[in-house]
């Protein structure tokens, strides 16, 4: 039964996690994501789950590693400085091939920065701040609805690939309240978890590790991981097009910036300017092929981000060589308003 709800993004995400069967939440408080642990602290007990306010972000991510190795769906959430502390754990999760969902409600930085919305963690999420040759899937919601829906998907993709998945949202998406349709969870078809460590009685012992010292072992492991990231690129790339048909200028934007861009595009269309939107939903794998295809037809692109220029590098790598890629950055403070983006797009139209 589909039901309309009116709720804030952080709560939509937490509801999605419980619906997806997440029963272990470990985290440490930080604004602007505190609604998430607050919600779990009340709700986990009702589903016989476990909520622990850990002593630090380092502890949280390693608790997830343990719960995940035992076969449970587990998650943590934090905001930017907290994610920095978790990078070692993310590298170990990726190296050990363990599923996990890690939420970043991006605040501004560097350092302690501020609590306003930002997209300054694009590089950290898509390139990984941890060591080693690894990738994490990165999902970028743009509405309260997607805070919920992409959380359901995140748990499935984490299990599908045995890999951590990052949900990269920001302070606006976490804190706005919006209407949402409460859809039932329809899980993907997933492989059995025949690798978990939950007692070895009656079977051969299993090993989960990220340390590979034997001759050739590390090399094989890295190529295996590489093949997994290639498979993500083949099977799980997502994006949204908006008014891109007959557009002469395409805005490339994700998350909060993308929905402000949608309003700017409506204003532009009202003035007769043919502008459309390309919105990556997966930031890794980046929708490079769809963007390349679009650039066969449209030759002018404007990347808009709430930072001073990060995703624009992926846009430039994706488009055809004869396409122009411009950039407009809105550094954190208050989020951009549609009129500001309208002025920006007029400058390159």
């Amino acid at each position: 039964m589909e039901k309309r709800l009116f709720l804030r993004g952080n709560h939509a995400l937490a509801i999605g996690a419980i619906k997806a069967g997440c029963r272990f939440y470990f985290g440490y408080p930080i604004t602007p994501q505190n609604d998430i642990p607050e919600f779990f602290s009340k709700q986990m007990v009702k589903v016989e789950g476990c909520f622990i306010q850990a002593e630090s972000e380092v502890a949280s991510i390693n608790m997830i590693l343990g719960a995940s190795a035992a076969g449970a769906r587990a998650m943590t959430s934090s905001s930017s400085p907290g994610l920095s502390l978790m990078q070692e754990g993310l590298s170990y999760l990726a190296g050990s091939e363990l599923p996990a969902v890690v939420v970043n409600i991006n605040r501004s930085g560097p350092g302690l920065g501020g609590i306003s919305a930002s997209q300054g963690d694009y590089f950290q999420a898509t390139r990984g701040g941890g060591h080693g040759d690894y990738r994490t899937l990165v999902l970028a919601p743009s509405s309260v609805q997607e805070m919920h829906d992409l959380t359901l998907l995140a748990f499935d993709l984490a299990d599908k690939y045995r890999n951590p998945v990052i949900i990269l949202a920001d302070a606006v998406l976490g804190q706005i309240q919006e209407t949402m349709v409460d859809r039932p969870y329809q899980p993907l078809e997933l492989p059995p978890k025949d690798w978990i460590l939950a007692g070895a009685s009656g079977r051969d012992p299993r090993l989960i590790k990220s340390l590979y010292l034997k001759e050739g072992e590390m090399e094989r492991h890295n190529w295996k991981l590489f093949e997994k990231y290639q498979r993500m690129k083949r099977e799980d790339v997502r994006h949204e097009n908006y008014l891109e048909e007959e557009a002469e200028l395409i805005i490339v934007s994700f998350g909060t910036a993308a929905r402000v861009a949608k309003s700017a595009i409506r204003l532009a269309r009202a003035e007769g300017l043919k502008v459309g939107l390309f919105r990556p939903i997966t930031l890794f794998p980046f929708p490079e092929k769809a963007l390349f295809d679009l650039s066969q037809r449209v030759k002018r692109f404007l990347t808009i981000e709430m930072n001073t220029g990060q995703m624009v590098e992926d846009v430039k790598l994706s488009v055809a060589r004869d396409a122009d890629v411009h950039f407009y950055g809105h550094a954190p403070g208050s989020p951009p308003a549609p009129e500001e983006l309208l002025n920006a797009l007029k400058k390159v139209y």
Partner: peptide, 9 residues
């Protein structure tokens, strides 16, 4: 559908 939740004017 609501685009920007942020409003200047």
């Amino acid at each position: 559908e609501i685009g920007s939740p942020i409003v200047d004017s």
